[in-house]
Nucleic acid binder design. Sequence first.
DNA 1: ATCTGTTCTAGTCACTATGACTTTTACTCA
DNA 2: TGAGTAAAAGTCATAGTGACTAGAACAGAT
Lengths: 235, 235
Amino acid sequence: MPVYSANVSERAQQPPELAISTVIFALRPDPEAGVPTLWLPLVRRTRQPFRDRWALPGGPLSPDESLQDAAARNLQETTGLQPSYLEQLYAFGGLDRSPVQRVVSIVYWALVKPDEAALARETENVRWVRADGLGQLAFDHNRIVEYALWRLRNKVEYSSIAYAFLGSTFTLAQVREVYEAVLGKQLDPANFRRQLRATPDIEPTDEYLQGGRHRPPRLYRYTGSTAQLSGSPPA
Amino acid sequence: MPVYSANVSERAQQPPELAISTVIFALRPDPEAGVPTLWLPLVRRTRQPFRDRWALPGGPLSPDESLQDAAARNLQETTGLQPSYLEQLYAFGGLDRSPVQRVVSIVYWALVKPDEAALARETENVRWVRADGLGQLAFDHNRIVEYALWRLRNKVEYSSIAYAFLGSTFTLAQVREVYEAVLGKQLDPANFRRQLRATPDIEPTDEYLQGGRHRPPRLYRYTGSTAQLSGSPPA
DNA sequence: ATCTGTTCTAGTCACTATGACTTTTACTCA
DNA sequence: TGAGTAAAAGTCATAGTGACTAGAACAGAT
C-alpha cells in the first residue's frame, strides 16, 4: 500500500470526489492476422497515485455539463474522436478504489466507427491497446474494462449495436466480423447471413464491393434508429 | 419555478451533491381484485424543495459505506425491510434535477419478498402506492420509476429474478402471477407451466398447497443462486 | 352420495427459428 | 482456361413456442 495514503479520519471528512471515465471500443485490424479485433485507448497517468500507469480516459465532472456530455468531452479531449454510441456503464463507488481520496466514478462506454478510429491520434500519453492483454491498469480499471466487455458482448447479441462499429454501407461479412471480434468465436457464414436477411432494419443496396478475389458481395445499409438502443432511460 | 432557486454563478461554484435513492418493489394483493400487483414505498419530503411531495427513499452517501450499502441502509431506515434483490439502476446527473443545487443521484432498485413486505411499516411520512398511478413525485422521480419498471420488466423475462418476489416454496401459478403482475398481461397457464418444468433451477417438492376449492397444486423450490443475477459487475 | 365449478396437469398440433451442411454463382489470379 | 475463394441460396433435422383439448383432483352445493 502506498505511503501517501490518507488515514481514515482524514478521508472520512472529505466528501467523495466525483469523476467520469469512459471505456472506448473500436475495431482495428490485428497487426498479424489482419482480422478486426477490439481495441481501446488508454492514457498514461502523469500524477500520483498510479503515476506512469495506464488508465481509462476520464476526469472530473464540470458543474455545467451533464454526465453524458462530460463523457463525450473527455472522449474528445483524449482521443479526438466522436463516438457513434455512448451509454452509461455503471457507477463505481467502492471505498478503496483510490488510495488517496475516495472517488466515485460514473463510467460510460462508447463505440467509434472505423473512419473515426483511423483518425485517432496516439501520443506519448495516449496509446491504443487490444482489449485482451492490457497489462495492469491503474485503480480498478481492469475490472471496469472487464465489465464493459461483458456488457458489449451481451448487447451485441440482443440489440443492433454492431452497426455502430460500421460505416454507412457494409457487406454482411463485415457485420459477421464485428460479431466474431466481439464474441470471440467463429460464426457460420450461411446461417448468419440468413438471420441478417430476415431483420427488417437491414436493407440491400444496389451496389457491390469490388476488389476481392471472389464473387463481389452486395452492400447493405442499416436503417434502424441509431439513437439510443434501449438501455438508457428515456430522455 | 421556485423562488429559492440559486442563480447560475452560485451553482457553478458548488460541487455537485451526491445522493443515493432506491426504487423498492413488492407484490401486494390489489385491494379490489385481490390479484398481486406491484407496489412501492414513497417518503414525504419534509423540506424544500418539493416540500410535502412524495419522493423515492434516499439520502446522502456516508463516507464509510459503499454505494450498495448506502442503498441498503436507507431502504432499511425508511421501510424497515431487507431486500431479497438489490442492484444499481442508473446514475442520474442532469443539470436541472433539483432547483436548489445540482444533485447527482445514484439510484438502486430492490425487490422484497412477501413476508418482508407484510412487515413494512406505514407512517405519516411513508406510504405504499401502486406502481402505476403514483401522482406527481418530487424531482425527476417519476422518470426514475418508469425506468426502474422498464428494467424490471426486461429482467423478469431473461433472468430468474421473479423468485426474489416469492417465499422458499411456491406453486407454479404463483410464479405466473408474478410474471403477470410485472408484465401486465395474462399468460397461458399450460404453456407457462411447461416452460418452468423445463428449467433445471426449479425442482418439485413432495408437498402440495391445500385449501383451494380445486385440485391442490404442487409446491416447488428455486435452487438457483439468489446471488446477483448477472447485470452487476463482478465483485 | 352426486353434481358442479374450479384449477392443476398432461398432452397434441402447427409453425418458427436454428445449427449443420451442400450446392451453385461470380469473381481474381496464375 | 482452370484453380481458388467467398457469396449466395437452399436442404434437413431438431428444439422451442402459441393455441388448444382433455382428464385429474379438490371444495362446496344440491
